[in-house]
Design a protein around this nucleic acid. Structure first.
Lengths: 243, 243
DNA sequence: CTATGTGAAGTTCTTCACAGCT
DNA sequence: AGCTGTGAAGAACTTCACATAG
């Protein structure tokens, strides 16, 4: 159940540090495990799980080793129990309340996205400034005015905020969320948010993603003339630009 | 398997290697420079530009140093020319044609998202399998059936594909895009795509982002009681879980 | 004197390769 | 035998701190 060296009872706090890069992959492993479980698998080897997750097996084993020892040597990992363990580590046992700010084009899509309510992330509150939206229900949740953030978020226990407003509004909205005690923010607005150190921001920046891809396209064009050599990048390799 | 760099023997091609991590930030700098230019700034110091971009100034200078020497010591960087240089490096001088596959909830939002057509990334082709969608125009582009990918993509010169289909369909769609010569893919579907080595995939995985945030929320809960110590993470710091 | 560009040091992440458990 | 868990080596990235150009 618990790692033997831990002493969870008293003030002697045993802390396991999990690298940031690992955390993001754990979420992927968890999803893959779900698929494997649906397929009826009881155990997986690191080799299999890694292949389906798109990583190499040594990395996967090291990632899982940060959680403790959950594998069986000579066999692999028990799908169900590893799944359960990952859910626990990722904090999916006690569900998170998510607030969505900005119910425009993108926000509307996010509100309806299955991945949230379906898998432990109910959108519990929605905010906008558009008078045509405020007061109307979306997915059964009434859209409130942005000015109500300080009142509503603590009341419904919001722990995660998603910002899908235009860029100009994002910083102000962010400040309000932080003031309302929301310390984890997912930012879809194309702007860099300034936040206090205790606030965790992750961004989804579509323009940046496309520009990174464009960079690689440009590299391919400039690099490979009529003769097209192997493109120089692996799973996470460096890139090449000519001058 | 991969000859990293061809022998630099006689073709005297000067190649600058730009780290992957840097490329993603260049796109951010470019956006910030645009804002500064709108604000009338002629030059910026690395300190300023870094602060607005949310990075530290040494990192910014090292990033820019990969492109060559574009700063003026004692002064800073010329906003306009740096902007121009970044656009060139990121391949934004010759525009990219983007194909969007999956015009459901999320895809519809992406089609209308301003960041694309507005800034060098016109959505040039759209695909879906829903008979109610196929044939109808969205944003002036007619939605074609997914089976037309091999015909349409090369015809309109698509270089970047965006996949916004359900997870089950994503791999198949991906294979079709790759077969159609699309070597850069932005994947919104919650699944890991298997692609040949020469194809560049970037993913936007909302469930993963939320789960990473949830992990940090859980860490805060388990960690900080009534006395709330400094949370252990910097811009990209490691995280903490208690047991 | 100011702010860049960069070697060098430091940190984090990845990969290797093999000891050790089942 | 087969496969995990891990120390050690390596690669990538970040930060420091200062020589150097303007």
């Amino acid at each position: 159940m618990l790692p033997p060296q831990a002493d969870p009872g008293d003030s002697e706090k045993v802390v396991k540090v999990i690298p940031e890069a690992t955390v993001a992959r754990l979420a992927v492993y968890l999803r893959v495990l779900g698929q494997l479980a649906d397929g009826g698998a009881e155990t997986v080897s690191s080799e299999e799980l890694a292949a389906v997750s798109g990583v190499n097996s040594a990395k996967l084993r090291k990632d899982l080793s940060h959680l403790g020892t959950y594998g069986i040597r000579g066999v692999g990992y028990d799908v169900a129990s590893l799944q359960h363990e990952l859910e626990k580590v990722l904090g999916l046992d006690h569900p998170q309340a998510v607030a969505l700010v900005g119910v425009g084009n993108l926000g509307h899509a996010l509100a309806g996205y299955g991945g949230f309510g379906g898998r432990g992330f109910p959108v519990t509150a929605m905010f906008d400034v558009d008078p045509d939206l405020v007061g109307t229900p979306i997915n059964g949740i009434e859209v409130r005015h942005v000015r109500d953030i300080p009142a509503v978020c603590p009341a419904v226990g919001v722990t995660i905020g998603m910002i899908a407003t235009p860029a100009q509004a994002a910083q102000q909205v962010c400040d309000q969320l932080v003031a309302a005690g929301v310390h984890s923010i997912l930012n879809f607005a194309p702007t860099v948010l300034q936040v206090p150190a205790e606030v965790e921001v992750r961004k989804v920046d579509l323009a940046v993603e496309l520009q990174v891809l464009a960079f690689h396209v440009a590299g391919r064009i400039n690099e490979g003339g009529p003769t097209s050599p192997q493109v120089v990048h692996g799973r996470n390799g460096s890139a090449v630009a000519t001058s």
